[in-house]
């Protein structure tokens, strides 16, 4: 359990993190989301005892970051942003060095497990600077989980990787998430959507949303958007609006000679789909497609983070 209380961090006159408070429960996979410069990395750096907060507190398992730094560091595995590594060491030397400092007693067994988990077989004796970016990222992971930490903090773990590598890393994250408390920061929505139980969105140093993926979506689903593709006489399409109450035709566009794409919006509490369908049938138009546009987390994210900027 990690508890942040009124955490604030100033860099000179710039307030990077502004009075943030939240709790992370044991075993939770938390996605920490926000645009670049929102304060994600700063918050994580404070959690890992790299930076000290200007004010406020973090408690990790009843230990305080101002007093028990060394003990907290022992509990946490951390993959920093940009994954810094000692590139002139081999993978083995590097992990050995980390293990020595962390005083891992069953080094051989842990090493074997971690190498297998991170798919590092075959590169163990290679110098890190000869590895590809994907492999380097795996070495970073191996470093973070070598001491089997209860809490794993990953700062933008997939940034700069190609799509295949991203899938691999995500699978690794999912597997690790089964047994650990995980905090993952990202500015990529699909990523947190794919792996996290809970999402905290932060913008300009403040929390703007906190909840599960589903909760966040439903919170921001004020209207249903229905997309129709149909073959109908152009002039008669606006008849939809005149004959059915409480809908708006937000756009009509021509797909080809005969077919049109129509976007309709209505309040989700009054489902108008049956009425629309029946009207189309009564007119004997040909319906090619009808689907609801799901409001994506992306839209939620954009709404929340751009709103703040406008003010």
């Amino acid at each position: 359990m990690i508890r942040l209380q009124n955490l604030t961090k100033d860099y000179g006159s710039l307030r990077a993190v502004d009075q943030i408070s939240f709790e992370i429960n044991e075993g939770e996979i938390l996605g920490f989301l926000g645009p670049n410069g929102a304060g994600k990395t700063t918050t994580l750096k404070i959690m890992t005892c790299y930076l000290s907060p200007t004010s406020g507190d973090i408690e990790v398992e009843d230990m305080n970051i101002h007093e028990d730094q060394i003990e907290i560091k022992k509990l946490i595995g951390y993959l920093p942003e940009h994954n810094p590594l000692y590139i002139d060491m081999t993978v083995y030397e590097y992990l050995r060095f980390i293990a020595d400092i962390r005083n891992i007693t069953d080094f051989r067994a842990r090493m074997k497990k971690v190498i297998e988990q991170c798919g590092l077989n075959g590169v163990v004796d290679k110098p890190i600077n000869t590895l590809s970016k994907g492999y380097k990222q795996r070495v970073g992971f191996a470093q973070a989980i070598l001491h089997d930490p209860k809490i794993l903090i990953l700062d933008e773990p997939t940034s700069g990787l190609d799509p295949n590598q991203i899938v691999e890393i995500r699978n690794l994250i999912k597997e690790l998430g089964k047994e650990k408390t995980l905090v993952i920061s990202s500015h990529i929505l699909q990523e947190v959507q794919a792996v996290c139980d809970r999402i905290i969105i932060i913008n300009k140093g403040k929390i703007v949303a906190d909840g599960s993926t589903e909760e966040l979506k439903s919170d921001f689903q004020h209207k249903t958007e229905l997309i129709l593709e149909l073959i109908a006489p152009e002039t008669e399409i606006s008849g939809l609006k005149e004959n059915i109450t409480d809908i708006t035709l937000s756009s009509i566009s021509k797909l080809n000679e005969t077919a049109f794409k129509v976007e309709i919006e209505f309040d989700p509490s009054h489902d108008k789909r049956a009425e629309i369908y029946n009207y189309i049938r009564s007119k004997e138009w040909t319906l090619l497609e009808m689907h609801r546009e799901n409001i994506s987390l992306e839209a939620v994210f954009r709404n929340l983070t751009i709103e703040g900027e406008g003010k």
């Binding site: 750096k45 890992t48 005892c49 790299y50 003990e71 920093p80 810094p84 590594l85 980390i98």
Partner: peptide, 11 residues
């Protein structure tokens, strides 16, 4: 190289 962050977050 940023490895200071790694070192400083080790116990």
């Amino acid at each position: 190289t940023g490895t200071i962050e790694l070192l400083a977050t080790l116990p």
